[in-house]
Design a protein around this nucleic acid. Structure first.
Length: 494
RNA sequence: GGUCGCGUGGCCGAGCGGUUAGGCAGAGGUCUGCAAAACCUUGUACACCAGUUCGAAUCUGGUCGCGACCUCCA
């Protein structure tokens, strides 16, 4: 475990702070998961990849992490008051839970494709209805919620008067919310104040998902589930809470209010928000055609791109920008990422073949500096773009060592061993990038290629360029690139 | 309308008072039968206008442009 301090940009204080876990060596992290009513959006991927990197790095630093990411399967209202899941169920003529299962499966599959680690706990809102009803009661008992016609609303005015913290996270002032909030929600008249929000909703007779409660047959408000499940699995106050920055208001703000209203304590010490994924400079939006699905990216079937891109290339592309900045997805950007990613993967293979006679340690510092630098950059609020720059510094060194521009014998055995251990670990364990071309290289293909390259080498020895080039061209047509180096030829699958 | 953020070289994208970000593309070179790869060298970059400072892409004010949130959203 490194002794380096980890810095986090805390949305709550708007400052970069040294991370201090509540319990030494342990981290409790909650991230708002997806609402499973349709296929995963590419934007979801960026957010969950970002938090996956944080999770991985915390583990790398030696923390024992409990990572909770929920599945929202109820309570998310549309403008017309209908539940998203119910709407999906009606549209697909399915049971609501069938909809939930279908898209949960799809979500999991996509997370696997992007090689993210599974959370420690993945709770669902509908599995915690009892706990949610209990929290509603607690909030009512504490005087921060009121019942109106079977629904229960959070009393933001009273809460703010006493706790003075409503709006702190999202930087809003409650008096302004009064003017700003549009009166287009159902049951608006039941609320005492426009900024009040439902924590329990009475269901209409034809509503598909509803449960019994002391107030009515109904369903919990959307914001409640995260308050309840984070408290249940991580405690009343835990370390890190994450989510997309579009959830800051109202979702996270209301979450804080509920937790403080119920337990009289802040839900977490550090709030981390990821920024949005854009495409061609604008937020992805289905309505104006400015959108692309992960599937389209994999197949190249979209007017926005010129070719197919693999999941790891897309992931690498995302990691080249900081999680808190917007990330603009473009074809040119993807193309550049693809080449860089391949270069990184090639260096990893090259590294395996390096051997040192251990005659001096002259170059050790040059190797160790970027190796340490990677950790330093990651410790600085998970700065993946800078960490990757350190990796590319090493790529150049590895290639120079192989080509003999740098003398491998001037690297001590212990440093070379460290390089061989840490470089792949950074790529695989911390960044979660896997070498995709490995899958195609079976042992049989290896043997065949060895033979082919030997035959070609024979032809080259006889200066029979016709045969030599014919082999190379034919292989190129089969998507195999031959490279002639000083110590013989090598090959890679494209 | 309110709140917040951003405008960096051909493209993507870090940095955020003085020191090379990095990737991709371009140019020159080394190597090579040729090619590819690799390595070395290389570029006029910080929207605009004022100001603070010995010194600003980085701080302050203004102008223009863009975006996000305020309503479901990762």
């Amino acid at each position: 475990m490194k002794s380096k301090e980890l810095l986090l940009q805390n949305s709550l204080t708007k400052k970069k702070e040294v991370f201090k876990p509540i319990n030494e060596g342990f981290v409790g992290m909650y991230v708002c998961g997806p609402t499973v009513y349709s296929d995963v959006h590419l934007g979801n991927v960026r957010t969950f990849v970002s938090f996956d990197i944080m999770y991985r790095f915390l583990l790398f630093l030696g923390y024992k992490v409990r990572y909770v990411r929920n599945i929202t399967d109820v309570g998310h209202l549309l403008d017309d008051g209908e539940d998203r899941i119910s709407k999906g169920a009606r549209a697909d003529k399915l049971e609501p839970m069938e909809v939930v299962q279908k898209y949960t499966n799809g979500f999991h599959k996509m997370m696997d494709i992007f090689n993210t680690k599974k959370p420690s706990i993945e709770p669902r809102a509908t599995q915690h209805i009892i706990e949610q009803i209990e929290m509603v009661q607690q909030i009512i008992d504490n005087g921060y919620a009121y019942e109106a016609n079977g629904s229960v609303y959070f009393d933001t005015l009273k809460f703010n008067e006493e706790k003075k913290c409503y709006g702190k996270l999202s930087g809003r002032v409650i008096d302004e919310l009064l003017v700003e909030t549009r009166d287009n929600l159902k049951n608006q008249s039941e609320k005492k104040h426009p900024s009040d929000f439902a924590i329990w909703m009475k269901a209409a007779p034809d509503h598909l998902m509803k449960w019994n409660s002391p107030w009515s047959v109904g369903f919990p408000g959307w914001h409640l589930e995260c308050s309840v499940m984070s408290t249940k699995y991580l405690g009343e106050t835990f370390d890190i809470h994450g989510g997309g920055n579009d959830l800051k208001f109202p979702h996270h703000e209301n979450e804080v209010a509920q937790n403080v209203g119920a337990c009289n304590c802040q839900p977490c010490n550090y709030w981390l928000h990821t920024n949005m994924l854009l495409m061609n400079g604008r937020k992805m939006s289905k309505s104006d055609g400015n959108t692309i699905t992960p599937q389209q990216l994999f197949t190249g079937d979209s007017p926005h791109i010129t070719k197919a891109y693999s999941p790891m290339v897309i992931k690498f592309f995302m990691l080249q920008s900081h999680y808190s900045s917007t990330n603009d997805l473009t074809d040119d950007g993807l193309l550049a990422a693809e080449k860089g990613y391949k270069r990184l993967m090639e260096a990893q293979k090259t590294l395996e073949g390096l051997v040192s006679k251990d005659s001096s340690a002259e170059l050790d510092a040059d190797i160790n500096k970027p190796l340490d630098g990677f950790i330093d950059e990651m410790c600085d609020d998970f700065n993946t773009p800078r960490a990757i720059a350190q990796l590319f510094d090493l790529v150049t060194k590895i290639n120079s060592l192989k080509e003999g521009h740098l003398d491998i014998n001037k690297v001590s055995n212990s440093t070379l061993t460290r390089l061989k251990t840490d470089f792949p670990r950074y790529i695989d364990e911390v960044l979660g990038l896997t070498n995709e071309s490995d899958g195609g290289n079976t042992a049989a293909l290896d043997e065949v290629m060895q033979l082919v390259l030997e035959l070609r080498q024979d032809a080259r020895a006889e200066k029979n360029w016709g045969v030599s080039d014919k082999i190379r061209d034919a292989l190129a047509a089969a998507n195999i690139t031959v490279k002639d180096g000083k110590e013989g030829s090598s090959w890679t699958m494209n």
